[in-house]
Structure formats: C-alpha cells, structure tokens
C-alpha cells in the first residue's frame, strides 16, 4: 500500500476516533447547549450511508464469486446459478413489496397529516406567522375537500380486493364512510374556543387514517408480488432459518455427550455441577433433595456468574486497549506493512 494511502487511512481513523473521544468526555449539558448537538445527529446519518455502501460490497462479492463460477461453468456452477437467481428474484419481489408499503402509508397519510395539523393549531398558537384563526380556516377547507373524496377512494380500493378478503374489507370501508360522514358533520362546529373539541376531531382523523391503512393493507397484500414475497420470505426463508436452528437440538445432545465423559478431575467436577444444575432445574429434583433448587441457584448465581464477569472484564479491558491502538494507528503489522515490494 502506498505511503499516502496509509497516511490518509491513519488520518481519517484518528479524526474519527478523536470526534467520538471528545463526544465521550464532553459533559452532557455542555454538549446539548452547543450547536454540536444538532450537527451530531446529521453526522450520524453518515453511518447509515456507510452501512448501505457496505451492503453494496457484499452484493458485489456475491456476484463476483458466483457469477464467475456460472460464466466459466466451474464445479458447483448450478448452485451458484440458483443462488444468483434467488437473490435477483428476492430483490425484485422485495422492491415491489416496499413500493406496496409506501402505497399503504400514502393512502392514510393525508388524514394523519390533517390530524397533526389540528393538534399543531391548538398547541402552537403563538409561534406561527399565520394567525390561528386563519390556520383553522385553511384546516377546515382542507378537511372538507379530503373527506369528500375519502369514501370514493375507499370504494375504489374495495373494488380491487378479491372475494377472499371482501367481507372484512367491506366492513372497514363502511367504517371509513361512517367516520368520514361524522367528521364532515362536525367540521363547521369546531372553533378555537374549545381546545378539547379540536383534539377530539384530531383523534377521529387519526382513527380515519388507521382505517384507511387497514383497508389499503388488505388490498396490497392480495396482489401477486406481495403473495410471492410472503411465500418466499415467511414460507421459505423463515422456515429454513427455523430448520437450521432446530439442528441445534441434535448437536447439543451430541456435545453434551462429549462434555460429560469423565476423562479428568476437572471433567468430573463439571459433570457433578451440571448434574446438580439439571436436577435443580426440573420439578422432579425437589423429590430427590429439597435443597437441590437452592444449590442450583447458588451455582448459577455465584461461581458461574463470577466466572462470566471475570471473562467479560478481561475482554472489555482488552477491547478498550485495542480501540486505543487502532485509534492512534499504533500497530503496523496487522493491517499494512512498512516494507514496500
């Protein structure tokens, strides 16, 4: 690696470490009172960006390794082909599902925004450029227009829902029409003189938003890409993960068999302790000896917990020291060599 690259890596590492070190030692009141506090939340978005870029590296790696296997028909190319196909299908289906999710949110967003607007009118009366009365007038016009087309929109969504979910969807659509009619009848009555009335109106708008979301969700989930996504993710991916996890049961039995072979004094001690813990754990243990659960509790809470804490303290100190070494780029051996070839 060229020397300027090494210098750049060390500089960025040092500056990033310095930033977090200063953040750590700055007292909280000073941090919160400074403009740094606001800038920090924006800087934090950088980590999200790095995470997204890293995912790209992972994808490139998969396409590079398995793509070359398929192209040159190396051994196991068929497995690689199925992997890439699965990845692409999942990518497409998950994107369509994501778009569907956005559609659901958009459908109920307007009602939710109007609800938030109503709350804002009564809670932020002083800090606005526009007078509260004028804001309320704009609010009433917006709500009236919104409610006028809600029932039509609900019926439009309802017409797209298949027979399987039609009964449930119809009941939600009726609820939407009822709430919309109720709101339409009250819109002219609300005034700034009665805050509670405005807040109740806002709560009903939220209810309308929730109903709209439910109805749209039923419609979107009934679409073919969403059904495929459900089948692939919930029906296949989650099920395969569970199958892998269930393998543990068999492996734990095999590992326990190996662990409990008494080959030395330490192994005998462990076997004895494990026997107490296991018998103390099950209801039958009390019939053998009534002190077994208490003994199990002591073994877990005292010797076991002490050993765990000792391991954790050692690991934490070592982590701190490695963090310090990396921050100051103290070690050169592991990551880049001084010697150039």
């Amino acid at each position: 690696m060229s020397s300027w690259k090494i210098f750049l890596i060390r500089l960025v590492t040092f500056l990033a470490g310095l930033y977090f070190f200063l953040l750590f030692i700055t007292p909280e009141p000073i941090f919160k009172a400074s403009p740094w506090s606001e800038a920090h939340s924006k800087i934090s978005y950088g980590f999200v960006a790095v995470g997204v870029m890293a995912l790209g590296i992972g994808l490139i790696n998969i396409f590079w390794i398995h793509g070359s296997k398929v192209v040159f028909k190396r051994s196991g190319w068929f497995n690689s082909l199925s992997l890439i196909s699965g990845l692409l299908v999942m990518l497409v289906v998950a994107t369509v599902d994501w778009i569907g999710g956005r559609e659901i949110n958009n459908f109920g967003r307007h009602s939710a925004m109007l609800s938030a607007f109503a709350i804002d009118i009564v809670e932020n009366k002083k800090n606005q450029l526009v007078l509260p009365e004028e804001r309320l007038r704009i609010f009433k016009i917006s709500v009236s227009e919104h409610l006028r087309e809600r029932s039509l929109a609900a019926n439009d969504v309802l017409s797209k829902i298949g027979s399987q979910d039609h009964f449930k969807a119809t009941s939600i659509a009726v609820d939407i029409s009822t709430v919309a009619a109720d709101l339409a009848s009250q819109i002219d009555k609300i005034s700034l003189a009665d805050f509670d009335q405005v807040k109740i109106f806002a709560a009903k708008l939220s209810e309308l938003s929730a109903l709209e979301l439910s109805l749209k969700r039923i419609e979107v989930k009934g679409r073919l890409p969403q059904k495929i996504y459900g089948l692939l993710y919930d029906g296949l991916f989650v099920a395969l993960g569970s199958a892998m996890f269930s393998l543990l049961a068999a492996y734990i039995a095999a590992a326990a068999f190996r662990a409990f072979r008494i080959k030395s004094w330490e192994a005998a001690l462990m076997m004895f302790a494990a026997l107490i813990v296991m018998l103390g754990q099950i209801p039958f243990g009390v019939y053998i000896n009534k002190n077994l659960p208490a003994l199990r509790f002591w073994l877990m809470q005292v010797p076991n917990s002490a050993a765990f804490k000792a391991i954790n303290i050692g690991a934490l100190v070592a982590s701190l020291v490695i963090g310090f070494r990396v921050w100051l780029s103290l070690e050169s051996s592991s990551f880049y060599r001084k010697k150039e070839k």
Binding site: G314, S333, S334
Partner: peptide, 20 residues
C-alpha cells in the same frame, strides 16, 4: 475470553502488541 485478544500478540511478537 480475553485470550483471543492475546493471540495476535503471541503469534506476531510485535512490540506494540506485546507491550499493550
């Protein structure tokens, strides 16, 4: 536990790692 953190120093014998 922390033996994992000692491993690199043990294998490389690099002064910075052994010292730390």
């Amino acid at each position: 536990g922390e033996e994992i953190f000692a491993a690199s120093a043990y294998l490389s014998r690099e002064p910075v790692q052994v010292g730390s």
